[in-house]
Design a binder for these strands. Sequence first.
DNA 1: TTGTACGCGTTATCAC
DNA 2: GTGATAACGCGTACAA
Lengths: 347, 347
Amino acid sequence: MPMTPSPPTIRDVAKRAQVGVATVSRVLNNSPNVTAATRAIVLQAIEELGFRPNAVARQLTRKTRLHNIGVITQLFLSYRSFAHRLRGVQLALSEYADKYELVLYTVGSLDHYAERLSYIAKNRLIEGLLIVDLDLTAEQHKLLTQSGIPFVGINHFHGRDWTCIGADNRSGAHLAAQHLLELGHSRIAYLGDAFIDSYHFITGRERFESFGQTLAEAGRPLEERFIRFCSHDYDEAYQAARDLLTQPVKPTALFAMSDMQALASIDAARGLGLRVPDDISVIGYDDLEIAYHAGLTTVRQHLELNGSVALRCLIDRIRGGNGAPEPLPAPELVVRQTTRRIEDTPS
Amino acid sequence: MPMTPSPPTIRDVAKRAQVGVATVSRVLNNSPNVTAATRAIVLQAIEELGFRPNAVARQLTRKTRLHNIGVITQLFLSYRSFAHRLRGVQLALSEYADKYELVLYTVGSLDHYAERLSYIAKNRLIEGLLIVDLDLTAEQHKLLTQSGIPFVGINHFHGRDWTCIGADNRSGAHLAAQHLLELGHSRIAYLGDAFIDSYHFITGRERFESFGQTLAEAGRPLEERFIRFCSHDYDEAYQAARDLLTQPVKPTALFAMSDMQALASIDAARGLGLRVPDDISVIGYDDLEIAYHAGLTTVRQHLELNGSVALRCLIDRIRGGNGAPEPLPAPELVVRQTTRRIEDTPS
DNA sequence: TTGTACGCGTTATCAC
DNA sequence: GTGATAACGCGTACAA
């Protein structure tokens, strides 16, 4: 049992097989200029040592540079909208002749996020980074900036000193509130993700605040009893919605900060014998493909386009440019079949 | 204008700035042991030369090995099911302490696919490869095998000599056919993707053949006029379905080889004033999340689990194991609201 | 056919 | 503070 703390190299193999390093290299690269006999010996040594060629060293001699673009995102949050955005990124990427690879960093917690960021900054294996649905602390921002890796956020955060590309959460939530108000609702509920003490998860907070503000300004402020926070998990959202709808006084309308939570709410409502939109109006946010098929009224935020625009902006920066990103269309209200006027509601 | 064909190195910068390479390195790594003056000079030289540090060389000295797992998939095909599978991969990956990165290779054509495969085999930047919804030619198989990179397919292909993990397309399509037959249908249509002269796209062929075979064995063979092929694009599928449903003699049931094509078919049917399932039964394949919300009868193939199992199998191989992968549950029929007995159909 | 020696671009360890 | 120089692990002329 060798005591080598570091993994075996091609030299160790050569020594063990009693051949030169070049021979080992030849075997590794399937060169025809090796006897079957020596090849066998080398292969044996490789096997015994558990040798695995070092990809990095190989790249160095081959003079091949890495062309990787990182995408960092959360594992347990909104992977559906992530899929749409990722698609936009891929589509835009395919238009470049350069062979950029997409490297996915999926973080499961804030600690994990911090760790990955410093790993990225330290090793600089990627030429650019797309930060999806995550914010940066001042410290993290500095870290990345110092690393020299261009980065672009995919999502809209207010008042950041770095480029975030995404539809405005506030105006989107405003649209939703406006819509429900115009339909005459006053007992309006909010279902969103938990953003408490979660520094990075800004999206939920922005939508919540803007929604509440719009309602308040219209003189129909959001009531405590009509607010629920939960994860984007379907079952959790279902339960939260059910909880909301089994109160003595029920809301007549509900805004969910994501389409998935809206769909879960609809199912919960129907499970309670409530009709949508007759008994309760439901509006979501995102306009996932699924929203179209479910006939869900929602706020469209052009997820795929968002991904494409962000990627193009990033590539531009990688290439030394620093122009403004293409403007993204503002969020728009998409009215389908899950909202209706309160007056029309049979009582 | 320097005639250097290769990008500038740290040495070029050092020469230009009239300093040693070590100093340049210090500047690059934000070492405090550099005068502001010299730092400025070096930065200037870097700027002028357009120098970008070589990530590969850096890795070499740092003795950091790459821990990448590649995922190769098609750009324009079934990205929805891909999203589900990718999620499974990510979830399984998060259970390993090793920090594996996921590298996405998205190919837009068969040529592109071939090119990427040889790139992968040649450079060996990844420790393992997941091949999603793509087949390998004998030549490509050999290439990968020789490269020593373990690979696992995510999808079920019959009769391959490499590990493909996925639910059996044939038995899934069989279930769909069986279901429609049991409901009494005889004018049955098929809508699937074009697999003609497309060596790699086996999924569609497998489902088509099995579906047709089951019908034939029941004495109600698939009729030419009730068959359409198109891409997974919604609009194309919509048109194909419309084409199918505007014939003098209409089918009473339709099997689409993917949920998205099924949903497009339903929309097309409704657009023509046909009721689903009263006038026509529609069954899909995949059981995407969207199918649940659309109430679509479909064939479930456990996409997310598929991704997880494949990843675990791949990691096992990377670590030298070569045991059989965990068994994947067989496809199951999920009956919802888009299929019904033909006898019940009002004529 | 096989072995030796050098280069790949960067970092780290020394001296200065 | 700064500059030589030796690694890092592998590929590959070149010589044998």
